[in-house]
Amino acid sequence: MTLQFIKFVENITLTDAQWKDAKTKYEGVCACLDKHFYDSAYNESHKFLFGSYKLKTPVRPIVPEQDVDVLFKIDSSTYVKYQNNPGGLLQEVRKALKERYTTTDKIKAWGKVVLIQFSDGTHNVEVLPAYERYDGKFLIPNTENGGSWNVFDPRTPIKSFQDSNLSSNSLTQKLTKMIKAWKRNTTTLEYKSCIIAEDVINFVNRFYPDGADTGNYLLVIKAFYTYIFSRTSSTDARYSLINIAKTRVDKAYQYEEEGKHIEASEELRKVFGDVFPKEEKNEPNSLENNIFTTAPSPWRVN
């Protein structure tokens, strides 16, 4: 199943053209804000990418809900200007972007973000104006409940992810994408991207800190579902969906052990969708079925 997993990861990984398009869009947004707030050309140090595009875990195919999350750093004078009016900053950001983007692109501001929805429906940019504190954390405006500034620390989870990914030879990144593919294929599943990343980090750090060969990815997936299933309460809304996925992956593993690659890939397609490639042929093995009703201990069989 090694080739199937290589292809699977490839199928859910953004192409170079898609990365380039995303980069063009978020840099364009930040360039516009640089012009407005600093009266300068695009300055890369004013932006801070976070979320899945920073972790390089967005999955294909691209859907409109997939936003590029980017912080745009404001200077202290802008912060002081809006210290008592955080909503005003969001409106100024919105206004600056409106001047640059066409009427076919939609720009919305609410809560903590300004969202730029592009007419092609891909790589929409969610920009958060933010003031960077001395400790590396950010203050971001929040218009809810009368308006306030909230502390936001994207660096800590990014570092955890990157450390895990580095030591596991990219397993953290690949597994996160696979689980996201499962989430996408399971429409009723509520599983936030940041929680997926957190679960994957904890799992990989504990069970595969040095990574795993692609040939063992089915075992890794199997272990991951056993891991989250054993840690999910039966009252959790995700419980039955995790159980279904776990049962299918266990079945796929069983088929694979019997050399039934086609059936194994069909089970995995039920979990991950069509992005998991079909196997073309089986290689049934000659293992005889050992039926027993008593076991020669240490087990007691009545």
Binding site: L287, E288, N289, I291
Partner: peptide, 16 residues
Amino acid sequence: FSFRAQYGEGPIISDH
């Protein structure tokens, strides 16, 4: 060590 086994009417398990 590979095996394919079934305990009574239970599920067949193939594993190694």
